[in-house]
Amino acid sequence: MHARAVAATTSALLGTATLLLPASDVRAVEVGDPPTVIAHRGGSAYAPENTLAAVDKAAGLGIRWVENDVQRTRDGKLVVIHDDNLRRTTDVEEVFPDRAPWKVKDFTAAEIARLDAGSWFGPAYAGTRVPTLEQYVRRVDRNHQKLLLEIKNPELYPGIEQQTLKVLANESWLDRQHRSKLIVQSFSADTVRTVHKLKPDVRTGLLGTPNVADLPGYAQFTDQINPSHSTISTGYVSAVQAFTGAHGKPLEVFTWTVNDATTARRVARYGVDGIITNTPDVVRNAVGAP
């Protein structure tokens, strides 16, 4: 996830909100349940991001939630990859040297399946592939994990919201058993709104740090506000959680991307509900999460 997508609330507003937060609320943060730990792109500090190996690494660490990114190929297949091009995490430049700028949307699923998505991370992962969304959710399910799914760059892929939900439905991820294990998020408010309209039972999250004044509108169709850790304070988290989300519960805050113990403890004191991290074992130990 990138911080570019949504403007942060002003520091003055956050500072004021922090000062106005009752002391009892601060104490509740300190003694309450620890935040949920979510493995960002799988166990991405320890295995190639957004791959089945990363999912398995998170499972091996005992991490129940994984986060991923979904984009679409030229022939309309959904694949799990963060960037809108293939250069950083595959050997696409070697396999297809004449296909610059190597955008995901310009390659078929079969072509992407040929790429090595692991050697860049380390020789032990040579030959790792970019998974399809179907492959990914099956692995998550097999590992008895939960999924925070980001619809990436929806402006590049018209209709990707409906298509993502169709894949999830085909893989039984929209049945009653799985719905409690799924959250669909995006930086695009329109995408989050669309997902909620198409499948109102699915929990959703809006990435970024929207102004508190805009939260009543977002709360109509989302269950979470998920900001960068560098943009929040106790006051902002408390302000978000004061609103009731789309499913009748307080809006949650899953913050990203926290990779060290000091920052993890700081945002836990803010009262966040979840921490998205490349190093889930480090964060779990820091905040005392199960």
Rank of each mutant, 00 (worst) to 15 (best):
Leu174Thr: 13
Lys199Gln: 13
Lys105Ala: 15
Leu206Met: 08
Ala213Met: 09
Arg203Phe: 09
Leu174Lys: 05
Asp116Asn: 04
Val92Arg: 06
Ala113Asn: 07
Val184Thr: 05
Arg193Cys: 07
Val140Asn: 09
Leu149Thr: 13
Leu174Gly: 04
Arg129Val: 07
Lys152Met: 06
Pro97Arg: 10
Thr164His: 09
Thr108Pro: 02
Pro200Trp: 06
Arg139Ile: 02
Trp173Thr: 12
Asp141Ile: 00
Gly159Ala: 06
Ala113Ser: 11
Trp102His: 14
Ile160Arg: 07
Tyr125Cys: 02
Asn143Ile: 06
Arg87Glu: 15
Lys146Phe: 01
Asn170Trp: 12
Pro97Lys: 04
Asp83His: 06
Leu206Phe: 08
Phe187Val: 12
Arg114Gly: 07
Val195Tyr: 07
Val212Thr: 09
Val92Gly: 08
Glu161Val: 08
Asp106Tyr: 03
Asp106Glu: 09
Ile151Thr: 05
Pro101Met: 07
Val140Ser: 05
Gly122Thr: 14
Thr209Lys: 05
Pro210Gly: 12
Ala169Asp: 15
Pro97Ala: 09
Gln71Gly: 00
Gly76Asn: 12
Asn170Gln: 11
Leu165Lys: 07
Arg179Gln: 14
Pro158Val: 10
Ala113Gln: 05
Gly205Asn: 09
Gly205Thr: 12
Gly205Val: 00
Val92Lys: 02
Leu78Gly: 04
Val184Glu: 01
Asn85Gly: 08
Thr132His: 03
Ala110Ser: 11
Thr164Lys: 04
Trp102Ser: 01
His178Met: 14
Ser188His: 04
Arg138Ser: 13
Gln135Phe: 08
Thr209Asp: 15
Glu94Gln: 13
Gln177His: 14
Asp190Cys: 00
Gly76Ser: 14
Val130Phe: 04
Pro210Val: 08
Gly205Asp: 10
Glu134Val: 15
Ile160Ser: 06
Ala113Phe: 09
His196Phe: 11
Ser188Ala: 11
Asp106Met: 01
Leu174Tyr: 12
Gly208Met: 02
Thr164Gly: 06
Leu156Met: 15
Ala109His: 07
Arg88Tyr: 12
Pro200Gln: 14
Lys197Gly: 14
Ala100Tyr: 08
